[in-house]
Nucleic acid binder design. Structure first.
Length: 433
RNA sequence: GCCUCGGUGGUGUAGUGGCCUAUCAUACGACCCUGUCACGGUCGUGACUCGGGUUCAAAUCCCGGCCGAGGCGCCA
């Protein structure tokens, strides 16, 4: 479309064309600086009035911030310019003028509230900070995807529209499906098991999950991205090793490949998590939380960990860590009980000091035990027939986990709201854009 | 679902009954300015979420709606 040069590959000598957004205009009188921004960076263009035609000067006068323009000119070395170079324009072509009343300020002189930024996400993405977050998120997903291929997984896609009611816990969004009752899926759990246990053995999926809970926090969304892993012939211990490797690789890749983006977010050096992560038992976790003195009242064995308990334990651990040996009754029906102590399960959670990142475990692959587990949790096995029935035909032992992709990026970049890492978040109140 | 807090120019804010003809920054306009890098200077433009109530007097107090932020629960 246009024969243009990206700003970060502009070098002195010769005439080039750059296209981008007007980031800022600084009119000093006889001298005007225009900062032009494209996806690669910001370039300073210098307009000296006495050397320019009336035509160029009148075009320059029309340029509000965030207008899209094409500049042709010579790049020259200039010690006084921001990156040591500047553009001496010969022509200006206005491609798209901007309304001067911007809904937010991409140059960052005036801050905007998150809600304003999300309403006008298109403009918000012009802020280098916002763009950096999504470039890093892309690198996280790219590196994780690569790692899954390296450990012999294939990428799968499971249905997001399902007939089955809840697996327990969360509420589902009902949808209209040709006169039948249907829901948006809360997780790929049951399907990925059928695929891994079915014969493909090692699978992963990066996709959306839907939860109809009306929560109001900085770490919950009604549509989130889940990174799911499932493999046959591995136990929960091996699944935990894969989980910590995945996190470690994501951090390393971002640290190596996203220097500028990290810099932009004020992170001089990403602290890399050391694997293996410490493992503590649920019982131990309860003790640590109770001994912290932070809890309004002590937790009893069998209680789920409260938000405060997670934080208190996180403060003490001060790194990623696993919680293992959960009581069977607070883990889902598809998690296998321990052989020696059936009151404990083979489920685990992987925690960042600030929140839960991963939940997983070894699955119950024995038909009779699975039926029992469903009934024990008050669920009707016939509602899950498409699933449990397959366990009659040779289901290997298998394990896996689901990781919150949004939370992974949020905690890596120490952002205070998960919505920062989601382009168009869906929450209790937000359905558009 | 339970609970708390908030809504002032395009954006971000100050202002807790009369001193508000509403502060400051940024933006935009005019003028001055040839090395800015949050350019600077002078002047100007532009706002009290909506409805009802209390009061001599409401941005400010009360009630309701709408919108937003957050805590808990639950989870990823």
């Amino acid at each position: 479309m246009y024969d243009r040069t990206l700003i970060n590959s502009s070098t002195p000598g010769g005439t080039i064309t750059v296209i981008g957004w007007v980031h800022e205009v600084r009119d000093l009188g006889g001298l005007t600086f225009l900062l032009l921004r494209d996806r690669s960076g910001i370039l300073q263009a210098k307009f000296e009035k006495e050397n320019l035609s009336q035509e160029i000067l009148s075009l320059l006068d029309q340029l509000y911030r965030e207008s899209v323009v094409l500049l042709t000119g010579e790049i020259v070395e200039e010690k006084r310019a921001p990156n040591g170079i500047e553009l001496i324009p010969k022509t200006i072509e206005i491609i798209s003028l901007s309304d001067p009343n911007l809904p937010l300020d991409p140059s960052g002189k005036v801050t905007s509230e998150l809600s304003t930024r999300l309403d006008k996400r298109c403009i918000d993405l012009r802020r280098p900070e916002s763009r950096s977050i999504f470039e890093i998120r892309s690198e996280v997903q790219r590196s994780i995807r690569q790692h899954f291929y390296d450990i012999d997984c294939i990428e799968i896609n499971t249905p997001k529209i399902v007939a089955t009611g809840t697996e327990g816990g969360t509420d589902l969004f009902p949808i209209a499906y040709f006169g039948k009752e249907a829901f948006m899926n809360q997780s790929p759990q049951l399907f990925k098991q059928l695929v891994a246990g079915g014969g493909i053995e090692r699978v992963f999926e990066i996709g959306p999950i839907f939860r109809a809970e009306e929560h109001n926090t900085t770490r919950h969304l009604n549509e989130a991205t889940s990174i799911d892993f499932e493999a046959a012939f591995i136990d929960h211990e091996m699944a935990m090793e894969v989980a910590e490797e995945v996190i470690s690789i994501a951090y390393h890749s971002v640290s190596e490949n996203c220097h500028e983006q990290l810099q932009m977010l004020g992170i001089q050096k990403l602290t890399l998590p050391q694997i293996p992560f410490p493992r503590i038992s649920y019982t131990n976790a309860i003790e640590i939380a109770n001994e912290s003195g932070d809890l309004p009242e002590p937790l009893n064995w069998g209680d789920d960990l409260s938000t405060q308990a997670e934080r208190s334990i996180g403060d003490i651990m001060n790194s990623h860590y696993f919680i293992t040996d959960w009581p069977s009754e607070i883990k889902p029906f598809y998690i296998q009980d321990q052989d020696e102590s059936p009151e404990l399960s083979k489920g685990f959670d992987l925690m960042h000091p600030s929140m839960e990142l991963v939940s997983g475990g070894q699955r119950e692959n024995r038909y009779e035990f699975l039926i029992n587990a469903l009934e024990n949790q008050g669920l009707n096995p016939s509602d899950f027939e498409f699933y449990v029935d397959m366990f009659r035909y040779g289901m290997p032992p298998h394990s896996g986990w689901g990781m919150g992709a949004d939370r992974l990026v949020m905690s890596m970049l120490q952002l205070d709201n998960v919505r920062e890492v989601v382009l168009f978040p869906r929450d209790r109140n937000r359905l558009a854009p």
